[in-house]
Simulated assay, not measured.
Amino acid sequence: MNMSIRNHWDTESVTYDSFVVKGFSIKKEREAWQTLFLDALKSKNLRLLDVGCGPGIVSMQLADLGYSMTAVDFSEKMLAAAVKNAADNNLKIDFHHGDAENLPFEDEFFEGVVSDYMLWTVPHPEKVISEWFRVLKPGCRIAYVDGNWVSDPKMTRLKVCLSNLGVFLDSPSRCFHGKCEVSADLQTLWSVNASRPADDIKMMEKAGFTDICVRHNIQDSVLHGIRHLAYGSTNDHFMITAVKPHTS
């Protein structure tokens, strides 16, 4: 994976970590995310892989429900934060340093794959999706969250200003570093010019996934109050779920 991506997330690790740690500590928000992923995965007690785990928020949410979690990230600073967060919450998660485009796991090893706000940052999303397919057991499910960060029609000047105010009220230090925005070193990413989630669906189909479903505006059910104003009022946060079919 491009080193500029790792450098970007290494730089963002402190402010992003504080954002997700706060989210995990808010019971209503944590339980809303857990319900969302439970509905998407359909089953409990699965061996799951979290790709692009960042500070570990999704892995922690799912480990808290009893899932067996393995997590991987390209940023060593994000991984260090994730290890600390898991330990602070007494959650057992198997963390690995690795590239989402070349996952360090065997074929058909996991009973589910999850990912959270990661695919937009990778240089070659089709490779990542192909890797998801490879490590997933047949009949099992992928559930990932992302957003349309560039061309969403909700990104009016007024809403962006109100959102920035919400970021400041929720986390003043994060306000000065931005939210999930496209920084200068990421301008060449595929997601800048993509039609999302339409392009995601095409890549998922090409990789071999079936039963592909999209749930739009999930932020309306998981974020509340100031945090919804800050992080959920200007973009469509969507979840895509799909199944790796059994071979005939």
Rank of each mutant, 00 (worst) to 15 (best):
M1C: 07
M1I: 07
M1W: 03
M3D: 14
M3H: 15
S4F: 12
H8K: 06
D10C: 06
D10L: 09
V14E: 15
T15H: 13
Y16A: 05
Y16V: 11
V21S: 15
K22H: 12
S25C: 11
K27L: 03
K27S: 11
E31D: 10
A32E: 02
W33Q: 01
T35I: 08
T35P: 02
T35V: 10
A40I: 07
L41Q: 10
L46T: 05
L48A: 10
L48H: 02
L49F: 11
D50V: 06
V51R: 11
G52L: 01
P55H: 05
P55T: 05
G56R: 06
I57A: 13
I57D: 04
I57M: 08
V58T: 08
M60D: 06
L62S: 02
A63H: 04
A63W: 03
A63S: 08
D64E: 13
L65Q: 14
G66Q: 11
Y67H: 15
M69F: 02
V72W: 10
F74E: 10
K77F: 09
M78R: 00
M78K: 00
L79R: 00
A80S: 09
V83W: 01
A86V: 00
N89L: 14
N90Y: 13
L91H: 00
F95I: 03
H96T: 10
D99M: 02
A100T: 10
E101F: 07
P104Q: 08
F105K: 07
E106D: 02
E108A: 04
G112R: 01
G112Q: 03
V114P: 04
D116Q: 12
D116E: 05
T121R: 00
H124I: 13
V128A: 03
S130E: 15
W132S: 07
R134K: 08
A143T: 03
V145Y: 00
G147F: 08
N148M: 02
S151T: 15
P153S: 10
K154D: 15
M155T: 06
M155D: 04
T156A: 01
T156L: 02
V160T: 13
C161H: 10
L162N: 09
N164C: 06
N164L: 05
L169K: 03
S171I: 05
P172R: 01
R174T: 00
F176M: 05
H177Q: 06
G178N: 00
K179L: 03
C180G: 12
S183R: 13
S183L: 12
S183H: 14
D185V: 14
D185I: 14
Q187P: 03
V192E: 08
N193H: 15
A194K: 09
A194M: 06
P197H: 11
A198P: 03
D199L: 04
D199W: 01
D199A: 07
D200E: 05
I201Y: 04
K202T: 09
M204F: 12
E205R: 14
E205L: 14
E205A: 15
G208S: 09
G208V: 09
V214H: 13
H216W: 05
N217D: 15
Q219P: 03
Q219E: 09
S221P: 00
H224R: 12
H228F: 15
H228E: 07
L229F: 11
Y231I: 00
Y231K: 06
S233I: 04
N235Q: 13
D236N: 09
H237Q: 04
F238C: 09
M239G: 11
T241S: 05
V243L: 11
V243F: 01
P245V: 05
P245S: 03
T247C: 12
